[in-house]
């Protein structure tokens, strides 16, 4: 790597902030907060805030370490070439130390202020994202999105465990819902956005297995999502408000995934409308499903802050 002149300057604090991927963090905070509010039991508001703060801090640390490891890949892709490290605004060691510092602080504070199990799961989620996903499996398997979805699925589980202090079926179900939601969400996007992952050697499913296989797998995950999203209701973990909302939302998800899986793109002229519709809806779906979970808890008077 050639030394750019800007590396002699200490990195701007805004670049450290950008390294935490603030937009991803907002989704992490939302789902973590939903898990926390929906969990049975009570948590002191200050400790609840601390738990969410630690989840966000851990996600920021993991994002920094992800960009530390992938700096050379980021430099080769249009979407990521402007990030702090590839542009030379920040050194690799600064990013690494910042990431390790944030991650360690998040786990430590969670353990001291909230509970040990929440800290342990937070630590596992960071190691999972950085080591299992970023370093190990992302460059090796076209199922990398499925693996990465696992990392995104931790926050509501950690929020829940922050309140209860133990792992029951409900937080595991919340984990599984996001886990099965991520592949159709991301692959719908991958079908209509020309990415340059192939250029840097990351095996994304549409490139490696082809469009037809990707469309089939979108359908498979969407089919699983329907009964899975209803399971919290069937086991009596939540009430009717969530149950009806989940049934409606997941059925619509499946109805929108059907045309995506049954058609083939007609070349450059194709405007990929069903794919764009599914992607846009998938974002709304997750927000609405978790909002329904919280609404169900609050209205039935069982939530942590009720």
């Amino acid at each position: 790597m050639t030394q750019t002149p800007s590396l002699h300057l200490p990195a701007d604090w805004r670049d450290f902030f950008a390294l935490t991927k603030p937009r991803v963090m907002s989704l992490v905070i939302f789902t973590g907060l939903c898990g926390l509010i929906a969990a049975p039991g009570h948590i002191h508001p200050v400790l609840g805030f601390t738990a969410i703060f630690c989840i966000a801090l851990g996600a920021g640390g993991a994002a920094a370490l992800n960009q530390w490891w992938e700096a050379d890949l980021d430099a080769g892709m249009k979407r990521t070439a402007q990030r702090p490290i590839p542009t030379g605004r920040m050194s690799l060691t600064s990013a690494r130390d910042f990431g390790v510092g944030l991650s360690a602080a998040s786990v430590l504070v969670m353990g001291l202020a909230v509970n040990v199990l929440a800290a342990l799961i937070l630590a596992i989620s960071i190691v999972y994202y950085v080591v299992v996903y970023t370093i190990w499996l992302k460059p090796r398997t076209p199922q990398n999105i499925v693996i990465g979805g696992g990392a995104g699925a931790f926050p509501p589980m950690i929020g829940w465990i922050a309140v209860t202090g133990d792992i029951t079926l409900m937080p595991v179900l919340l984990f599984l819902i996001i886990f099965f939601w991520t592949p159709p969400h991301f692959w719908a996007l991958a079908l209509f956005v020309q990415s340059d992952y192939a250029k840097v050697g990351i095996p994304m499913l549409p490139v490696v297995a082809g469009e037809a296989a990707t469309r089939r797998q979108i359908l498979a995950y969407s089919v699983i999502l329907l009964p899975l999203s209803l399971t919290p209701w069937w086991i009596g973990g939540v009430g009717q408000i969530y149950g009806y909302a989940a049934a409606g939302l997941s059925l619509l998800f499946l109805l929108l995934a059907l045309p995506v899986s049954l058609r083939r793109s007609a070349g450059d002229e194709d405007r990929m409308k069903p794919e764009k519709r599914l992607f846009a809806y998938s974002v709304l779906y997750l927000f609405a499903l978790f909002a329904a979970l919280v609404a169900d808890r609050l209205l039935s008077g069982q939530g942590a802050i009720s």
């Binding site: 002191h44 200050v46 400790l47 703060f53 001291l112 202020a113």
Partner: peptide, 13 residues
């Protein structure tokens, strides 16, 4: 400030 607030919250419990 956060550690102070956590301490007060924990003492209250």
């Amino acid at each position: 400030v956060l550690f102070f607030a956590i301490t007060i919250a924990k003492m209250g419990q």
